[in-house]
Amino acid sequence: MSSKAKEYKKVAYYPGCALEGTGHAYNRSTKELGKALGLELDEVKNWNCCGAMEVKNIDPKVQTYLSSRVMSIAANEMGHDVVMAPCNGCYHNLKKAEYDLKNDDASKQVVERISKKAGHQTYESGQVETIHALDWIKDGIGEEGLKERVKSSLKDLKIANYYGCMYTRPRHIFPEKDQGEGSDSTSEPHFMDDLLAAAGAENVDFPLKTACCGGAHTLSDSDTSTLLVSNILEAAESAGAEVIATECPTCHSGLEMHQVRAEKRFGRKTNVKIVYFTQLLGMALGLSAKKVGVHENISDSRALLKEKGIA
């Protein structure tokens, strides 16, 4: 068992804005998965938005402040030393804030100034460790732990694992990655592959794991996003995938939206289904499709999952 297993038994949970909107199915499946695995989530009290991909273009230091406030509440008001963020955007921004507060005095000064005026304790770098939902399961339970608990194997389900941009780039804000065995790789991430394989799935060789879906411009430059998404969907299909597993609400809704848009506007139709990895793991543990919110996805995978005997 991983040395982190004990530490991840109870963590601060930062769902973020998307998980209260388009990513609702990710939120509910993450919580259900935690319950099924005996991992406790303690939601960060009165959290705020991390700034996503947008606030940094107005001012990057404001984005650093927004993330620091979330970490400050988790550490100083709730006494946590681990914050788990299932959204790649939130995860990335908290990691980036951690890096900047450790290495850039100007960022530190701005965060101090705004925190003081806002009336809360300033976050100090090192107070919490930010982890992704993938780290949470991988290190909190592990593949062996998952295998023991599988009730409805994902066997025969061919999956392309899609990680997107923010989980691995840029490298310097993820000092724990690329550290050999037990750590994830920034060029070829594999934590999601490992977990789904432990649940019985057949992972296909998918070259566009960390390609970009154009999420930042999903509405402001829709044609570019549709083109990028179509490339991802078609590559997954030609790799033989029936399902694309996702671990980010922005990637997930981007793939779903532009799958429809590509069909409507450009006649590029694909049939590959898009499912959150937490939904797949939840079903493998015996939770119903409804419980993990499969019906909330736009991409309708219910018939496929039924046919495979998973849902």
Binding site: C17, N48, C49, G51, A52, E54, V55, N57, I58, V62, L66, A216, H217, L219, S220, D221
Partner: peptide
């Protein structure tokens, strides 16, 4: 369009803390 999107988004975050 990207700047418009950034502004709409950031104004909401700065005003209410969430989007």
């Amino acid at each position: 369009p990207s700047t418009h999107f950034d502004e709409v988004f950031s104004e909401q975050v700065i005003q209410t803390g969430k989007i």
